[in-house]
Structure formats: structure tokens, C-alpha cells
Computed example of a mutant assay.
Amino acid sequence: MFNNIYNNKKVLVTGHTGFKGGWLSLWLKQLGAKVYGISNEVYPDPSLYKVSEINSQVESHIADIRDLNSMLSIIGKIEPDFVFHLAAQPIVKIAFDNPLDTFNTNIMGTANVLEAIRRIEKPCIAVMITSDKCYDNVEWPWGYKETDHLGGKDPYSASKGAAELIIKTYFHSFFKKQGKIKIASVRAGNVIGGGDWADSRIVPDCFRAWAKGDKVIIRSPNSTRPWQHVLEPLSGYLQTGQLLYNPDKVNINGEAYNFGPPTDQNYTVLDLLRQLAINWDNQNADILQIESGDFPESGLLKLNIDKSLFHMEWKPTLNFNETAKFTSDWYQAYYKSNEVNMLDFTKDQISEYIIVAQRKGILWSLK
């Protein structure tokens, strides 16, 4: 799997206490990596990091990516073979409430991590994770390509677009000339899966309510999103690291890549919640409540993944129903059973995902 490149390597995950960072850290551990993490230890309670005991799998460093000296010290001491940069302020609403903090974290924090990587004396692979929100959303119905305009009209989107410009600048000004640092930026969105308890997200809100026996009130049931399980983009990030480390058919150094579901896998909020509800409650109880009145539709932002399909031969593994089942099964294990070890369960889901990928002939899982 991934040509076994992560085995016995030092891999740093910034934002390892977050939702995606936690899943990535556990997957890297299963791949035989020595995993290090940097985080300011800000996470919801409960959190994937706590309930799955990810601290037992990672050498954790508590620091703020806005602090350049901390990044220089920690990254300089670790001297990682790989860096996956996920640490960020990820919530759109918080960005409206506190735009300067979001800019400092997502823009200058990214610059600080890149500067620390630049000063490493040894070769290093850096996979920089931003977001589908880095694109300027002009409300068109087709997917955004890596060559489309960056930057949005809201603080969060602007911070992600600016982070992409910082990444591009470091590549062309420093890494391309030096040669020892290889880098790529990767973008994904609408990620769901077990262990996400962030505020103002529909899936965590649902399971919080359902665990208490409450109905979930839906105000925009017909809004359409390209939903994907968290392990889908992570497989793309890991394959990006693999191809940077050991180029196969194409040189991806300095490139940007989108990861998302197939273009035809766009389901409404109501479609998703109904499928989650079926998996959550086998009796199919009425646990959804749609408010009466008109429902304004938010704009669709989806990614074109043709470049990843062509360059990497990467493709999604799970269909819509499998995505919903993986997600509901995790929350069921947490909320409905006091005897389940969530670290083991989360690792088992990674193993199950790999088996599905192998059964479907997905390239990264076969060699």
C-alpha cells in the first residue's frame, strides 16, 4: 500500500488533534510511520482525538502555528521525512466572527510552517492541505479546476485562497531551486465521518440530537453537496506524498490537486440525513423534522477531480450509501455501546476501507 513508503519514516501532522488530522495520524501509524503532531490542543469535547485515544499513537507537541519560533524549534528538532499540514481555523462562521484570527492562523500559520520546513537540512516531502473554499465561487454548476481563480468573498475563503498563494510562492521562490523540499497543495470539501463534533456542521448536529432522542430540524433540505467520507481525501493526500517521494509516471512537485466524489455523486442534505437515519435507527423512526416555509438554496461548490484521476490514477472508493454507513456505524459504536474501544473501532474502519478499496481495484491499495 502506497509502495510502503511511510514505514519507519518520521511523519509530522499539523492539526493532529482535529477531525481529519486524527484520522490521518491513525492511518499513518497503521502504515508503520513514526507519527508526530503539532496542535494548539483546541478541539471540541467530545472529540475524535480524545475518544479514540490518538495521543497514545502520536508524539504530540502543543504549540500554535502562528508562533514562528515554536515552528522553527519543533520542526527543526523532528526533521521529518514527511509533513502533512492540516492545522487551521476551519469554521466559516468563526471566520466571520473573528476574521483577523482566521487570517493569522490560515495564512501566516501556513507561512510559518513552510518557513520551518525551508530551514530543514534534509530532504522533506510537504503535503499542504487547504480547502475547496480556496476557489472563488461564482455559482456555476460545474466543478472547479486547479487552474480556476482563487479567493472568495468571505473571510474563510479568502484565508484559504491566500494560503494557496503562499504555498505557490514558497515553491517557486525557494523549494524549486533548492530541490530537497518537494511540495504539493491538495483541496477537498464536504467531508463527513465518525468523530466530527464541530459546531455548525449538519452531520455532527444530527448525531448529537439523535443520541439524546431529539429530532433534527432541517431548514435547507434541498441544498446539494458532494459528500465524501473523511478517508477518501486522506487516501489522496497519502498518494500525493507517495508520488512526491517516488515519482511514477508524472512529476507532481509544485502542483495542486482536488480530491472529491464522482461528479454524479451530489446528494441533497435531506438525502444524506435520511440515509444516515436509516443506518442509525434500524426501525427507521421519524427523527427528522423539516420546517415549513420556503427553503433558500445555498450555492453549490464542487471540485473537478480530472487532474487527480489522470495524473495519479486516484479515484474515490466509497459510494454514497457506503459513505453514510461508515459514518453512522462510527457514531453508533460511540453513542450506543459502552463496551466499544473507539481506538480499535476507528482503526478497524480504516482497515475495512482499505479492504473495500482493494476489492474495487483502487490503485493506491494494491501496491
Rank of each mutant, 00 (worst) to 15 (best):
D64N: 12
V51I: 14
N69S: 15
A87H: 03
N98H: 10
I54K: 15
I94L: 12
I107R: 00
D97G: 07
F103L: 07
A116W: 11
A88Q: 14
D64C: 06
P90D: 00
I117D: 05
I107F: 03
A95C: 11
P90G: 02
L72P: 00
S73C: 01
E79Y: 09
F103A: 02
N40Q: 08
N69G: 12
V51K: 01
L48A: 05
I75P: 06
I54D: 01
F103K: 04
Y49G: 06
I107D: 01
S70F: 11
M108F: 14
S56N: 11
L86K: 11
N106L: 00
S56A: 07
Y43K: 09
E53V: 13
A87T: 03
P99M: 09
S60W: 05
L68A: 13
H61C: 11
Y43C: 08
V92E: 10
I75R: 11
L48N: 03
N69D: 15
A116R: 07
D81L: 11
L68Y: 14
L48M: 07
M71Q: 13
Y43D: 03
P99R: 09
I74Q: 12
N98T: 15
L114N: 06
A88Y: 10
L114T: 13
F84Q: 01
T110V: 06
P46I: 01
G109D: 11
N106V: 00
G109V: 05
A88V: 14
I78D: 01
D45P: 00
V113Y: 00
A95M: 05
V51L: 15
Q57P: 00
D101P: 05
V92Y: 04
S60I: 11
D81E: 13
E79Q: 15
F82H: 09
S47T: 01
T110P: 00
E59F: 15
K50G: 15
E79S: 10
I62D: 01
I91P: 07
K50W: 07
P90E: 03
I78T: 00
I75K: 03
V92Q: 10
V113H: 02
T102V: 05
D81I: 12
N106C: 03
T110K: 01
H85Y: 02
P44D: 15
I65W: 07
E53G: 13
G109W: 10
Y43A: 08
L100P: 05
V51A: 08
L68R: 14
I91A: 15
F84E: 03
G76K: 09
Y49P: 00
I62G: 06
T110L: 02
F84G: 08
V58W: 13
I62A: 12
H61G: 06
L100I: 11
V92K: 08
A116G: 05
I94W: 10
I75L: 04
Y49E: 09
S56Q: 14
G76W: 04
F96A: 08
K50A: 14
P99G: 07
V113C: 06
I117E: 04
H85K: 07
V58P: 00
Y49F: 14
T110E: 03
N69L: 15
G76Q: 10
I74K: 05
L68D: 13
M108I: 11
A87Y: 03
S47L: 07
H85S: 06
L100G: 01
Y49M: 09
